[in-house]
Amino acid sequence: MLDVKNLHTEYYQGGRVAHAARGVSIHVPQGQAVALVGESGSGKSTVAQSVMRMIRPPVGNLREGIVSVNGIDVRLCTDRQMRQVLRNEIGFIPQDPTTALDPLYTIRSQIKEVLPEEDKRNADQVITELLESLGIVNAADRLGDYPHEFSGGMKQRVAIAIALAKRPSVLIADEPTTALDVTTQVGILRLLDRLRRERNLATLFITHNIRVARLLCQHVVVMYGGIVVESGPIEQVMAAPSHPYTRALLDASVLGDRPRQKLRAIPGNPPSLFAMPQGCPFSPRCANATDQCHEGLPSEVATEQGTRYTCWNPVAS
């Protein structure tokens, strides 16, 4: 189980402070997948990195909040304890599998490295079974191959194998399909969905495409400018988005059954982390923005459909 409460993460650069996450809360129960959606710079990767405590001084710091992985608060861990948490509890799937594997080692050796001790004795068998369960045919023949002998989708499966080899309870996938072509993407998404069910994984799926998230996730958390603007069951959020940003995200992505629909871009760019507007971070780009929006953030509002949003002027649905 992954539980993030009121997380504040900062980056430091040349004496300036960037507030990359401001009071983010995410709850991922066992066996469920939660999508963390947002544009580049919205703070979604920051949240993932905070969970794995990859942000540390002098680069940045987790200033406030609780980041609990199966009840262990990673903010309170020593380095040694944190390595144990990373080794035993968290599996991470990288964005670009082509660079995530060391070109000098065989697939066997890179997976074996992370196997738990009890699996190391019959490592070849364990690795072969794992790879075949991830859809690599003739895995036994390919254990001695090097990463460059695999295609992108296959490399991603190897990366997933590395993430799962230690049997984690939490899986964090940081845009695991953006570096792959579309047909491969669907395969990987289906695979992740199956693994979540079979292994009862608490999955945090980071993506910029809310419609991709729908294939895999039950819940969605939409981030913008370091805050959670809307969250809730993904069907409800997509059917009736309350926050103008969620609405805009949906309008900006393709819907398969309505191919002729005109895509609408969101005007402007996300705010710089170092120059965050006062009030709602989306207010400079928001069509519904009023004076109130530029001055302060409202508190979170719960809807009847079970979604929550942070907005003064929600979209009428």
Partner: peptide, 10 residues
């Protein structure tokens, strides 16, 4: 990435 990954994996 593979060096970062090795840290992510503990």
């Amino acid at each position: 990435d593979y060096v970062v990954m090795s840290k992510v994996m503990g």
